[in-house]
Design a binder for these strands. Structure first.
Length: 188
DNA sequence: GGAAGGATTGACT
DNA sequence: GTCAATCCTTCCC
């Protein structure tokens, strides 16, 4: 049962650190995640209410919410509920611990450490795309909760300040890259 | 019906 | 360090 992975995203997120998620023949140990609450979180896709695309976030916990972004990348969230609320945890990075060969094939030229370092990379390593949206996913809790740190979320244009990003302290696969890289060249 | 934006990554200078 | 790529979804008129 995955009761430990259900409920308030802010509580579930740290519990996911160190957990092993298996999909598409590849297993990854989650090292970095971000919590996304619902109506109260301007950074969440569900902030503006339920839409055909984010409806999965309102669905049952334990499902995968996959979305396409920037026309070329996929990002995966684990829906946590609570039931009726669009809570989810974005899987930002992980360490490939199973199906390494398969992951390498999907990400040729990348060092093992980078196979799942980053939300879009993690999806590719696991073979996740829009076809997996709303599907159930296998997650095994970590035996022991690793030491983790928290900090501001990355990449969002709204409410990025909230310290809802969680990562395993000192883990090399955490994508602490790009501290700041503002795209809008105009203005200021 | 049309336009703007996005929870990123990879490549080039 | 900086810039470009590219599809889907949502909002506005």
């Amino acid at each position: 049962m995955t009761a430990w992975a259900e409920g308030d995203p802010l509580e579930v997120a740290p519990r996911l650190l160190g957990a092993v998620l298996t999909h598409g023949g590849v297993a990854v140990r989650l090292t970095e995640v971000e919590a996304y609450a619902g109506p109260d979180d301007p950074g969440s896709h569900a902030f503006r209410g339920r839409t055909p695309r984010n409806s999965v976030m309102f669905g049952p916990p334990g499902c995968l919410y996959v979305y396409f972004v920037y026309g070329m990348h996929h990002c995966a969230n684990l829906v946590t509920g609570p039931d009726g609320e669009p809570g989810a945890v974005l899987l930002r990075a992980g360490e490939v611990v199973g199906g390494l060969d398969l992951a390498r094939v999907r990400r040729p030229g990348s060092p093992d450490r980078d196979l799942a370092r980053g939300p879009a990379r993690l999806c590719r390593a696991l073979g996740i795309d829009l076809a997996e949206n709303g599907t159930r996913v296998a997650v095994v809790a970590a035996a022991d909760q690793p030491t983790f740190s928290t900090g501001p979320r990355v990449g969002l244009r709204h409410a990025a300040e909230r310290p809802w990003r969680f990562w395993i302290t000192d883990d090399p696969t955490v994508s602490t890259y790009r501290p700041a890289s503002p795209r809008p060249s105009t203005g200021r």
